[in-house]
């Protein structure tokens, strides 16, 4: 019973310590520099003052993040299945996957705007691009790491290619898939935010958090800018939390990672 207790108490303690430091730094700043670091209560006030525009922006960013994330999961899973077929396929495609990952979003964004227009479409594609790589790499690794003995068993019982893939390789790859999913879940809101910042639009739905950040900084609303950052963090936590729940549902009953072996 000590461990769950510590698991809550320790991060809470660190949090309080950091907030205390925050106030201390702010206090130490000279009057004309205080605007650089709004206090948590000022940020809270800005959050309430801008609640309407922030909640609309949060909704739009969430939409972009979820769509891009889901698209990345679906496409990466399909591609991972293909990549798992042979190392020749992997060898011929991996370099280009790397390039996809290396391409700077800042450069991609204006091109995307040109192709599909600013707004949700571009945001979804940018989120997709950011989430895609960790998903495809981890899932592929999982699909090709199936226990040799189990593969042998399936071959001995003359399993079809389909049975070997979907009854054996896919479930065996789940722990790897969730590793990729955890990384992608943290990246998705950031991807949507960056997408919105670089290729967002206020047309139609009014834009997302990235677009809101541009507006607040042009208006020198620094507390609101901090509030935007806070909302983005919360969004990240929601994503990570959702994936943790999914992972727990899929793995907790059978996978060793959910069972402490040390005493």
């Amino acid at each position: 019973m000590r461990r769950p207790f510590l698991n809550i108490l320790l991060p809470l303690g660190t949090g309080l310590l950091m907030v205390a430091c925050w106030y201390a730094v702010r206090h130490a700043l000279s009057e004309d520099l205080k605007f650089l670091l709004p206090t948590p209560d000022e940020i809270w006030a800005a959050l309430q003052a801008n609640s309407e525009s922030l909640s609309r922006a949060t909704l739009n960013t969430s939409k972009g993040a979820v769509l891009g994330f889901v698209l990345a999961v679906v496409v990466s899973f399909g591609l991972a299945l293909i990549l798992s077929l042979s190392h020749l396929i992997r060898a011929s495609l991996y370099p280009y996957l790397m390039i996809l990952q290396m391409m700077p979003i800042i450069v991609i964004a204006p091109i995307l705007v040109l192709w599909v227009g600013a707004g949700l479409n571009s945001v979804v594609i940018i989120t997709f691009l950011i989430c895609f790589f960790p998903l495809v790499v981890n899932t592929t690794q999982g699909l090709i790491s199936t226990d040799r003995n189990l593969v042998e068993l399936f071959r001995m019982y003359r399993a079809t290619r389909w049975q070997e893939t979907f009854w054996l390789r896919v479930p065996a790859a789940l722990p790897y898939f969730f590793t990729g999913l955890r990384i992608a879940a943290v990246l998705a809101p950031i991807g949507a935010l960056v997408g919105d910042y670089t290729a967002g639009s206020s047309a139609g739905d009014g834009g997302g958090l990235g677009f809101q950040a541009i507006i607040y900084s042009s208006q020198a609303k620094y507390s609101a800018l901090f509030a935007t950052a806070a909302v983005t963090c919360i969004l990240g936590f929601v994503f990570a939390g959702a994936v943790n729940i999914l992972s727990w549902l899929a793995l907790s009953k059978w996978h060793d990672s959910y069972h402490r072996t040390d005493n």
Binding site: D147, N149, L150, E152, L153, F154, M156, Y157, R158, A159, Q163, W167, L168, P171, A172, L174, K253, W254, H255
Partner: peptide
């Protein structure tokens, strides 16, 4: 081939399946 069954040194169970499902898996493949 249909007349044979195998047992290996490793139990070669599918860790994500319950005992009942693991026992049935050979028949399921057939």
């Amino acid at each position: 081939a249909a007349e044979l069954a195998f047992v290996f040194q490793e139990p070669t169970l599918l860790p994500w399946l319950t005992v009942a499902h693991n026992i049935e898996v050979a028949q399921q493949l057939r």
